[in-house]
Design a protein around this nucleic acid. Structure first.
Lengths: 342, 342
DNA sequence: CAGAATCTGAGGTACGCACCTCAAAACGCT
DNA sequence: AGCGTTTTGAGGTGCGTACCTCAGATTCTG
């Protein structure tokens, strides 16, 4: 059992000193690019692999990560916060600390200022959940320029290919909802209501697009009605839903693509009466979980908050140590929840 | 920011020496139970938490884990092996090694002998995937007596509550399949074929029970036909399926509950002709994945091999360090795979 | 109460790497 | 060639724990 090569072995094999190896491994300045190449080639040759455990210990301090979440009272964000706390406690013994920061509510400028104010000493990396806007994107870039690792979290900053993302593909999530909706309704005919909080956000848009594409391709005999926006306003939702239900006796499905499904589902149950309507919503919260158990919704399309958080932390850590992660291990699954696999 | 207490702090606070703290933390002999109590109480009081990173480094060697898999040529086992290799490579930098061992094929006695022969020096822990029998159970117990951590993996040793298990609840998996099958077929009438390799194994039995219970409770208008056993024999499956399809023109669904779905699905497609039959199978393999993509199966009920393997490794490690794991983080999800969330 | 058995303390070494300093060497330029 | 600048080397320290040894203290036994 030949022991794994250490930095000493690497230094000797590359014909450089430990100090230079250290400079290369940790991306420090002051090394000729030719020397960097030599070291990297030697790493391949002798199959050197950093001992992450020793490296972590030697740093003498824990990594500090922050999750920036939107100020929003919804249940999904609440669940997410809970999970971050839980996972953070578990990671404490691995010298990683994580906490939740709440972004100010005054739009993208507020968030940008907030990010700008984060002190460099305070955090090694941050995971940011925020709608995609140029302001936010630039703010993230500036955070990175200060040497803090940044990733977008749950909401992808899609136009910025270089900002890493941890979350699901919302287009595929919408498509999955569509496929399931179609299969649940078929072979019946009918129309489907799509409810969103607001279609400003790219996430909602992508889900809607995925949903529509599948419905059009696989279930052309079903009609997808124009999207309805709730803006979180009970009166409005109530009015809108009952209008549609009155006008269209053929409504066979309701797809709630917002992360907060409480209001729409409650009203759908109340107004739908005894009609046979298939309901699909997103995210697992105490409310949707109970709704699933009690038959007020047929299925949920979810992403596991625990996985999201762990994956974000692993990704941030890997970037801090300028390692790469195994993509296959970091892909977040789009889950379909039924009553029995809760 | 007060630094976390170290073993030194703990020793001082408990009024004992570092050596005693070490003995208690690592469960070594030679400490009066009263002293153990004092130390444990102090751990609570000062909120001491072991630094896993330092502990791992100080061990001077990597943990060595083995996955004992059945000798079986199926695709699922193959995928599992692949994942174990992948995950093992990723864990190498955390001083954890894992490898696959193949169990002998000559029944529970062979496996028992195999386990008995594993040398203590060779492994710190093993994850065993094997059918539930008293022989296997006893063999696992004896492995544990030799100081090697052992867990049952994928196949639960159900009668042995004390042997930790990493895998899914197969009853719930069957129930999920049943729920989905019922919803896909409804509101139509019809009967459902259930195909298994053999119903000897507890896993198959549990899936079948879960499936039946849901079909009976939620979809009494559907008929679940008696189980058919394939024993991996093409001629037999072919005969059996065509017989049933001939005799029952109302067949509306086929549930393949074996881990290896290739044969049943291929024959179902071939013999089913143009009939509108909903098909559900288990596990994601290159074959089932292609089948899902190409519409030869409507849905798959799966467990993520990557999660399984990582969870098994985390569990084994925690046991080696006599730590407890966070149950909520180690629950393996029962996943529903459709074409769009592959 | 002596002797044996058991328990505890003090101290050391090592794990593999990060991070630091300072001097020496190599390089680029005029 | 001489200068300043950049790159490299040598060496040291410490992270928090495991694991080891051996002497000294305590408890148990008859």
């Amino acid at each position: 059992m030949p022991d794994r090569p250490t930095t000493r072995d690497l230094a000797k094999a590359a014909g450089v000193s430990l100090a230079t190896v250290d400079r290369v491994l940790n991306g420090r300045a002051g090394v000729r690019s030719k020397t960097v190449e030599v070291v990297n080639k030697t790493i391949q040759e002798i199959g050197f692999q950093r001992n992450v455990v020793a490296a972590t210990l030697a740093r003498r301090r824990a990594y500090r990560f922050a999750f920036v979440l939107p100020l929003q009272s919804g249940e999904f964000i609440g669940q997410l916060s809970l999970r971050i706390g839980e996972v953070a406690r578990a990671f404490a013994s691995e010298m990683i600390e994580a906490e939740v920061l709440t972004a100010p509510e005054d739009g993208p400028h507020g968030l940008a200022r907030f990010l700008a104010d984060l002190s460099v000493q305070a955090y090694d990396g941050i995971a940011i959940m925020a709608p995609e806007t140029p302001h936010v994107r630039d703010a993230i870039r500036r955070v990175e320029e200060r040497g803090i690792q940044a990733i977008s979290f749950i909401s992808r900053q899609a136009a910025a290919e270089d900002i890493p993302f941890v979350g699901i593909d919302n287009h595929a999530a919408g498509a999955t909802a569509g496929e399931l909706m179609g299969r649940l309704i078929s072979p019946r005919q009918g129309s489907v209501i799509v409810l969103g909080e607001s279609f400003q956000s790219r996430d909602s848009l992508e889900r809607r697009l995925g949903f529509d594409r599948v419905m059009g391709d696989m279930f052309p005999h079903l009609t997808v009605l124009p999207s309805l926006e709730t803006h979180g306003d009970e009166g409005r939702v109530r009015r809108v839903i009952s209008q549609v239900l009155d006008a269209r006796p053929d409504v066979a499905g309701i797809y709630v693509l917002a992360s907060e499904a409480r209001l729409p589902l409650t009203l759908a149950a109340e107004l739908g009466g005894g009609r046979d309507i298939q309901r699909i919503a997103h995210e697992r919260t105490p409310f949707t979980e109970a709704a699933l158990r009690e038959g007020r919704v047929e299925a949920l399309i979810t992403q596991d908050p625990g996985h999201l958080v762990r994956s974000a932390i692993r990704t941030l850590r890997a970037r801090c140590e300028n390692r790469t992660t195994l993509a296959s291990q970091e892909r977040i699954r789009i889950e379909v929840l039924l009553k029995h696999n809760l």
